[in-house]
């Protein structure tokens, strides 16, 4: 039986094959480890590597296929993505643009009680969701760690690892009690694995939740800071608690409440409706 692969060593081999200079490790996600590399003196890129398993390979392929069809300033650029073999083992290797502005998780304090910044962030990411929608893609994992910045102003949606392609067969088993995604930022239909209800409005919920949290400084479904309770409330399809709704209204962000509605039919139907609502308030 093979032990866990030495991904740093694999990264060095990949860099050698692709003629990159390995600069440093950036961090790890659920499956992938990311490295900062340079293709030349002025071009820095993010190299991501993951061991391939039978269950993960279709997801990697789907992510690559989904991202390769996208071209939007608020969607991370994918330069290359493929399986590579080293020492008889297969690894998934992707090369993406390097976003050096950090994550929203790191910068969330900049948006605290700053409704104009929140609206601007919301509008640019809603435009990205529209870009995905017309391609029948649902990101399904919108959270502060997956929103990065290309510059001070340009937010970018990253990590399409569990992207759902609506007109392709599902990769999630129907019998699973919960669909993939980060529960803390997931809509009820995702938490309950109600696949027929998943569409761009599922991402709308996640985005609104991230925006609301950034604006008021706590998870909108847990004004008492009890995060498991927040997930339970969303799964029970409860409305946003009154204390959070009041805070959002005070900041002129009441329009987010519709995006946080428990059922997709009650949310904004089109991304442009959300963008308009954010602008109007």
């Amino acid at each position: 039986m093979q032990g866990p692969p030495d991904l740093a060593a694999i990264a060095a081999l990949v860099c050698k094959q692709l003629d990159f200079t390995l600069v440093k490790e950036l961090g790890s996600g659920a499956h992938k480890r990311a490295y900062l590399v340079e293709s030349d003196a002025s071009t820095r890129l993010a190299l991501k590597i993951a061991p391939v398993t039978a269950s993960l390979k279709p997801r990697f392929e789907r992510e690559a296929s989904a991202l390769s069809g996208c071209s939007h300033p608020s969607v991370a650029v994918l330069h290359d993505s493929r399986a590579m073999a080293f020492d008889g083992r297969e690894f998934w290797v992707s090369v993406e643009e390097f976003l050096d502005g950090g994550t929203l998780a790191e910068r969330q304090s900049l948006f605290f009680q700053n409704p104009s910044a929140v609206k601007k962030l919301g509008a640019s990411l809603a435009a990205a969701l529209d870009h995905l929608r017309v391609r029948s893609l649902v990101h399904r994992d919108i959270k502060p760690a997956n929103v990065m910045f290309r510059s001070e102003d340009q937010a970018v949606l990253t990590d399409f690892g569990i992207v759902r392609v609506l007109d392709a067969p599902t990769l999630t088993h129907d019998f699973m009690p919960q669909g993939p995604g980060t529960p803390l930022y997931a809509a009820a239909e995702q938490l309950l694995n109600e696949k027929a209800l998943i569409d761009w409005r599922t991402d709308q919920f996640g985005l609104a939740l991230v925006l609301a949290e950034s604006a008021i400084g706590f998870h909108p479904f847990a004004p008492e800071k009890d995060l498991p309770l927040a997930v339970a409330r969303v799964a029970r399809r409860e409305p946003v608690p009154a204390a959070s709704a009041r805070k959002l209204a005070e900041l002129g962000l009441a329009s987010l409440l519709q995006a946080l509605a428990p059922w997709p039919a009650l949310r904004y139907r089109r991304p442009q409706d959300l963008i308009n609502a954010l602008a109007v308030v």
Binding site: L197, R201, P264, A265
Partner: peptide, 15 residues
């Protein structure tokens, strides 16, 4: 319970 919302959510998925 929830049937109306579920059906409406699916039917409004489309443009």
């Amino acid at each position: 319970l929830g049937a109306v919302e579920r059906i409406a959510s699916i039917l409004t998925r489309t443009q």
